[in-house]
Design a protein around this nucleic acid. Structure first.
Lengths: 207, 207
DNA sequence: AACTGTGAAATTATTCACAGCT
DNA sequence: AGCTGTGAATAATTTCACAGTT
């Protein structure tokens, strides 16, 4: 069956909602919908893509549902992550507290600035970019976050692919080319602001 | 006419591509498609939502198209932006060089940490959060970036709405409630990693 | 009675394919 | 001849609505 990509995103949000609810109880699709802003039918359909977890007339067992979603998303295991580019944004992500609760740990960091190499931040020693491949192979790292400037982003992505990385969260404002078995998720901060500017322009026109 | 939200996102990417091309020439939908990874029909349809800019047998005038897209997105004007929460991520965004070329300028920053208030970063003096409403009103700021911890995010968003902000880029891992004339774009970094983990889990199963 | 799971219908988005302009 | 603009066709996603289960 073909699962809409958007469903995965919603699943993450359902999971977040469940974290704020007492465990030892049931929750209905209606209640999840209310708390996340989606519709009840959508919640049920999304969950049904992956099996039948609900009990008619009661809803979903919260603790079970949490475990199930976590397993679907793959956040039931811990994932080690590599960070490439320890500039402002990279440092902020190193210090970001939101990753570990979801099972992600930035295990190693790389930069090409000699002044940074060898320094430790948040318990992670910054390594020279030339160490990238051996370290990633050794640590069996499959996920990387790219926060380098756009002019070296493609080069870094190529190195990551060669080092066996298959999932990349890219903050550089380019869309890197990768083999099709590698997943890239692009976050372009300026583009997000552009979308807001579009809405703003529209709504000001409407007045 | 109803314009798909995704079309706006693509428009931003077309624009980025055009920046890397000589001005005084034409470009075909096919060429734009090739450079952005979408299809030519999609490029033409997206542009056609907003008017007829192309010349049959030649393509689109690059300089004109750039101006046109910029106008559609609203990036032809400069936008002043407020930043709330000068933690690691907030500081990184303050220093981020990618906003200004697209017409966004972080004009003021707020925090509630007394040790930070009064300090200047990147030429922006950090103000006490109590100054938020008067400053935003005075500066007529409509766009805000929220990088506070999740437990105060809703409160901050409420303040922003009261101060007249109608577009919010939110990095706190909650979905704030806002009146329907306010647009919120949520970037949840952990959720993005969860999507990658999902792909990774799937592709490992396939082997 | 209450709530799930799911086909069918409706809606939304994308792709096709070609008439028409330069 | 080449490339746009766009209706029509197709595909994807969401919503509806209800049969079935507890």
């Amino acid at each position: 069956m073909k699962i809409p990509l958007a469903a995965i995103h919603r699943l993450s949000l359902y999971y977040r909602t469940l974290l704020g609810v007492r465990d030892d109880d049931f929750i209905s699709s209606d209640e999840i919908a209310k708390r996340t802003g989606f519709t009840a039918a959508q919640v049920r359909k999304d969950l049904a893509y992956f099996g039948q977890f609900g009990i008619p007339s009661k809803g979903y067992r919260i603790d079970e549902l949490k475990r199930t979603i976590s397993k679907i998303l793959g956040t039931d295991k811990a994932w080690d992550v590599a960070l490439i580019g320890v500039g402002n944004l990279g440092m902020a992500l190193l210090a970001y507290k939101g990753f570990e609760p979801q099972g992600f740990k930035i295990k190693c960091a790389f930069d090409n600035d000699l002044r940074k190499i060898g320094r430790a931040l948040e318990g992670v020693v910054i390594q020279d970019i030339s160490e990238l491949k051996p370290t990633l192979k050794k640590e069996k790292i499959r996920i990387a976050i790219v926060t380098v400037r756009s002019d070296s982003a493609q080069e870094v992505v190529d190195m990551l692919v060669k080092a066996g990385v298959t999932a990349i969260l890219n903050f550089a404002p380019i869309r890197p080319r990768v083999p099709k078995d590698v997943d890239v998720l692009n976050i372009d901060l300026a583009i997000e602001l552009e979308r807001l500017a579009y809405f703003l322009t529209r709504s000001e026109k409407r007045r």
